[in-house]
Design a protein around this nucleic acid. Structure first.
Lengths: 306, 306
DNA sequence: CTGAAAGCGCTAACAA
DNA sequence: TTGTTAGCGCTTTCAG
């Protein structure tokens, strides 16, 4: 019988088995971006894990506000997926209620605030780690380049990394006023402009922590144009370990992006298939020292503390 | 009746309508990468167009050889999609036969060789455009940095851009021997190493055409480390207009990536829904002059031809 | 434990 | 036109 099936190259119809069993063999993934480094990596990790487990991945890019509104109004996930993954999705209470009403298994990545189990990193600790690296090198005058905290997308990450930055400064007894942080729109361009703001100040910090590697790339660009030496005149540290961080010789805090996608899928499928109870999981971040950080130039600032 | 449906928040079951109608409302997208700039952009363009038309997008990342083999053996697309899109998919004859046997509507992007209608650019013409820009600036000693033409992925693009490069040199009566092209694995890292190869030569060219912006970024990196001035000592031109090209001030040949995804979807849906006959479409490329190209330094090479 | 039959929730073809 | 019914190809349940 099996032989005959093989000869006729029989393939079960997914539609029929979905209808009969109620299981769709599909997982929905919602994300506000799909092309940015972090999101592309997470999606790739999720896609691979789902494929291996025999599931299909349905991608919903909610970046466009109109698309997002339509998504939450019509809930296209309904009847279409067994479970869902939210990547860095910061939701309004109404959106959260919609999601809850779907009544499907769900996991979240990168600190989505949906109330469902989450996989992610500790952004605050990671940011503090970056700052402590700078302090250990002897820096005392440190600024941060950051996205706009009012941007609904990326909001929580921005806030957490800022908090880590300020906390680490405070712990070390260093000046930590709000003017330590300069905001520009997230991205390379924003990073470049933020660095320009810093250059326009009367006194340049000796080190800069950028909220993301993308913003750090922009900052490096501005410094290059200004013919300033990195790390001689100014140290720069980023966050993420973007694929281009190595080639830009950027010191950074690495986070495992693909792994977060993979893990969230595993967790979701455990709930779905084995009724496991999902719990939050926090993945470690790691300092990667490269060439953009070094001790402050002697005389440019006070010496390292004892 | 409609009111009652709305009140009970009725949603049609896709599984049932698929089973009954035979239409799945889903398009499969096959790609060898999903995170690289070009692919991420194309997929985003396709996703948006499909979403607007009410279709779901099923993503198949065929980058891993084992995954690819399994894909062509089991043809998971069968019974699962109404049509498919192949992005830069260079296929073996057997793979092509499998695809054809699926007997579904299909379109291809970026020069896939599947025999189905294609949307893309003219890589050869684009490459020639890059070289002519350099020649017009007065360069006569021009090299190319390129991926490995034996790499099955990206093969056709590499070959076409090389051909355009050599053709343009030949047309201008410039030296066009095979040593004009240096090969390294595709990517930033490869571009950096290719530039190192060039620097190791007795005589440096005055300009370099990189097969892709990613490789150009690597080349710029190497030049920066070698403290060479761009474009003073050496001009660099890329290809693609990658999102980071602007911030790296890279002169390049722009190609519309999102648009290719969008257009391929439109074309596929026209075939599917209106029985239209799909035809190949070639999108234009465009020279974007930025700061990495300029005239050769006087005395470094012969003067511009009259 | 094996095999037959009753749906799953739609679409499409048919009758009225 | 509008209303009715027979499947679509599976899964699952229930007899045997």
């Amino acid at each position: 019988v099996l032989q005959a099936a093989a000869e006729l190259s029989y393939v079960p119809s997914p539609a029929a088995s979905r209808l009969a069993s109620g299981r769709t063999g599909t997982i929905g993934v919602m994300a506000p971006f799909t092309t940015r480094w972090f999101f592309a990596e997470v999606i790739q990790g999720a896609e691979r894990a789902l494929r291996e487990a025999g599931y299909d991945l349905l991608l919903y890019n909610l970046g466009d506000p109109a698309t997002r509104r339509r998504f939450f109004e019509t809930l296209p996930l309904r009847r279409r997926v067994d479970g869902a993954l939210a990547v860095a999705l910061y939701t309004s209470p109404a959106e959260r209620a919609s999601l809850r009403a779907l009544n499907i298994a769900m996991s979240t990545i990168a600190g989505s605030d949906t109330g469902f189990p989450r996989v992610g990193i500790d952004d605050q600790t990671g940011a503090a780690m970056a700052v402590r690296h700078l302090i250990l090198l002897g820096h005392r005058d440190i600024a941060m380049i950051s996205g706009n905290p009012d941007d609904p997308i990326g909001h929580l990450t921005t806030v957490a990394r800022r908090t880590g930055f300020l906390t680490a400064l405070c712990e070390a007894g260093l000046p930590d006023g709000p003017d330590r942080v300069v905001s520009e729109p997230w991205g390379v361009e924003g990073g470049a402009r933020a660095m320009e703001q810093l250059l326009a100040r009367a006194r340049l910090p000796t080190a800069v922590f950028a909220e993301s590697d993308e913003m750090a790339f922009g900052a490096l660009q501005t410094l290059r144009r200004a013919r300033l030496d990195v790390p001689g005149d100014l140290s720069v540290i980023g966050f993420d370990d973007h694929e281009m961080a190595a080639s830009n010789d950027l010191t950074t805090i690495a986070q495992p992006a693909v792994e977060q996608g993979r893990l969230a899928v595993r967790q979701l499928l455990d709930v779905l298939e084995r009724g496991a109870a999902a719990s939050d999981v926090v993945l470690p971040t790691r300092l990667v020292v490269r060439g953009t950080t070094g001790p402050p130039r002697a005389g440019r600032d006070v010496a390292p503390r004892a």
